[in-house]
């Protein structure tokens, strides 16, 4: 199941560039000077203990949270200085897969998938929307579930539909928040394969927030270890795994146990 390393990573082109990023909540400092780059075509997994600010970081990237200070460029745009309209235009180029899948309970699968298109591309005909929905439903192998409600789907199917909903707008960057959390090993493997397929088929660059070392190893080109609000080690899985840093060793030991 090891990752197919056939894709092209352009190390000249940064799609996300973060410099000295800080974020705190009331009296808790979460991010304490993050420096990081994501290159075009690359998948990076961010590992770290719970509460270290991994999800906070990707929410800052997509503009859901504002950083206290620091620079954040996404697809060449300085996120903190964008107007609401500019931020929305940027968000159309970013896909965000939520930990909880975040499917709209009141809509069936078809309506969930069509929603971003209906809201953002008003000139699309019903036929175009149907085609786009079928294309992404097919990409996640759930074309037969379009008429079902989210409550009728399994955890893995919900994750797949959540990913499909982000793919419908053809994003250049994918942000996955705990894509395999709460799933059994077989379903986790299916999601891992889907993440790799998305990278190859849709030519995306991705950040994958995870605790799952198998997911990190199989989906990512690099691993970034977030400890105490900073990236303590960034490198390939083997480089990070073989480090002498005690905290990282401890994290890997606990997760392999």
């Amino acid at each position: 199941m090891d990752k197919l390393k056939q894709h092209f990573i352009n190390r000249e082109e940064e799609v996300i560039s973060i410099k000295d990023l800080y974020k705190s909540f009331e009296n808790l400092d979460v991010l304490k000077g993050i420096n990081f780059s994501l290159y075009k075509g690359e998948n990076v997994a961010i590992l770290g203990k719970s509460g270290t600010g991994k999800s906070v970081l990707i929410k800052i990237i997509v503009g859901l949270l504002k950083p206290d200070k620091g620079h954040l460029q996404v697809l060449g745009k300085e996120v903190n200085t964008l107007s609401k309209r500019e931020l929305d235009a940027l968000r159309l180029r970013i896909g965000f897969s939520f930990q909880s899948s975040a499917l709209y309970d009141g809509m069936n699968v078809y309506q969930n998938l069509a929603f971003p298109l209906r809201m953002n591309l008003k000139n699309l005909s019903k036929k175009d929307i149907n085609l786009a929905v079928e294309r992404v439903a097919d990409a996640v192998s759930l074309k037969d579930k379009l008429s079902q409600m989210p409550s009728d789907l399994s955890g893995g199917q919900r994750k797949r539909i959540g990913i499909a909903r982000t793919l419908i707008l053809k994003p250049e960057i994918m942000l996955y928040d705990e894509p395999t959390a709460g799933l059994d090993p077989i379903t986790s493997t299916e999601i891992i394969e889907l993440i790799n397929q998305v990278q190859h088929r849709f030519n995306t660059s991705s950040i994958i927030i995870t605790h799952d070392l198998t997911c990190a190893k199989c989906t990512s080109d690099r691993i970034a270890m977030l400890l105490d609000g900073k990236f303590s080690k960034v490198g390939t899985f083997d480089e990070v795994f073989e480090t002498n840093d005690n905290q990282i060793k401890e994290f890997f030991n606990y997760n392999f146990m």
């Binding site: 235009a89 939520f98 975040a102 499917l103 309970d105 809201m119 953002n120 909903r165």
Partner: peptide, 17 residues
């Protein structure tokens, strides 16, 4: 409230809605 705690409102926001 349920949409808020299950991140559905944030999902709308990141879909530029």
């Amino acid at each position: 409230g349920s949409m808020k705690v299950t991140e559905q409102i944030e999902a709308m926001e990141v879909s530029a809605v």
